[in-house]
Each structure stands twice: as C-alpha cells, then as structure tokens.
Design a protein around this nucleic acid. Structure first.
Length: 137
DNA sequence: GCCAACGTTGGC
DNA sequence: GCCAACGTTGGC
C-alpha cells in the first residue's frame, strides 16, 4: 500500500474542515506531476495532510476512498480529483522545520520539491514521520 | 525547438 | 514583503 503527502493552505481548505466534512473531494490540482500522483492513488492508500504557508506542518492522516475521476472544478477534462476521508490528527504535528533539520528526510519530496502539492512518501519516511507525530497505528 | 518573460507557489 | 524555484506562454 502506497503512502502520500498532500498539501493544502489552511486559508483555502484546512484540516479542521477536512475533519468536519469527513469525506472531501481533493480538487484544484493543476500540475502534471501532482496529477500523475493523484492518478496513482489506490483505495485505502493513506496520505499525510500538510498545512502549507500557515503552520507548515503535517497535521493529520487521510485515506483515499475514491480513486481518480475528472476534477469537477476543472474547465477542461484534463485534471483529476480523488476523494479523501479524515482518519485522525497527529497527536503531535510534525513541522517542516523539524523535518529539514533531520538528515533522514533529506530525500523527502516535501523538502526537495517545495512546490509539488501531491507527492509520494516512502514507507520508511511514512513510519518515521508517523512515529514523530505520536501516531499509534 | 529555444529561451526570455511572466505568473504562481510557498518558505522565510 | 521578498525572493527562489519552477511551470507556462509566446516570440522568433
């Protein structure tokens, strides 16, 4: 089962809203690499939910409950969405600053490609971050 | 097909 | 508010 990280600016769509809504369509991705990552997501895959700009930290975990379908917010049919369900908050959010200081995360896409909004996370990185966040899986 | 100009993202 | 990174657009 693959793991991912998705970014959202909390001013636009926050973790609190994700939790309140339960299941939420992940729309608005307009970058081809990010789109390819969305298309590679499978039912049951989990993703870290990251707050960009405000907070700059991983705050929770979501799960893919519907695989890629045409993004309803896209004018052309070229983009895709998936549906995400809130699974739970990290007991202790893991900040970008923290990840940057730890050499084990040097290869993490969040650090290497700061502008990518949907990215894969290796199993090792997933476990390390979940542990840092106090996640009991 | 190259590349300069420009727009956007996102960290600081 | 600034700027680096980087994707996109458009002239040639």
């Amino acid at each position: 089962m693959a793991h991912w990280l998705v970014k959202s600016e909390p001013d636009a769509f926050s973790w609190a809203q994700q939790v309140a809504n339960g299941v939420e369509p992940w729309t608005g991705v307009r970058n081809h690499m990010a789109k390819n990552n969305l298309k590679a997501m499978r039912l049951g895959d989990r993703a870290f939910f990251y707050h960009s700009n405000v907070g700059k930290e991983i705050v929770g975990i979501v799960e893919v409950v519907r695989e890629a379908y045409p993004d309803p917010t896209a004018e052309s049919g070229d983009w895709v969405s998936v549906d995400m369900k809130a699974i739970g908050p990290l007991p202790r959010p893991v900040t970008l600053a923290e990840l940057k200081t730890d050499p084990r995360f040097a290869e993490l896409a969040l650090i290497r490609q700061s502008r990518l909004s949907v990215m894969p996370v290796s199993d090792l990185h997933w476990q390390l971050i979940a542990r840092l966040g106090g996640w009991k899986a």
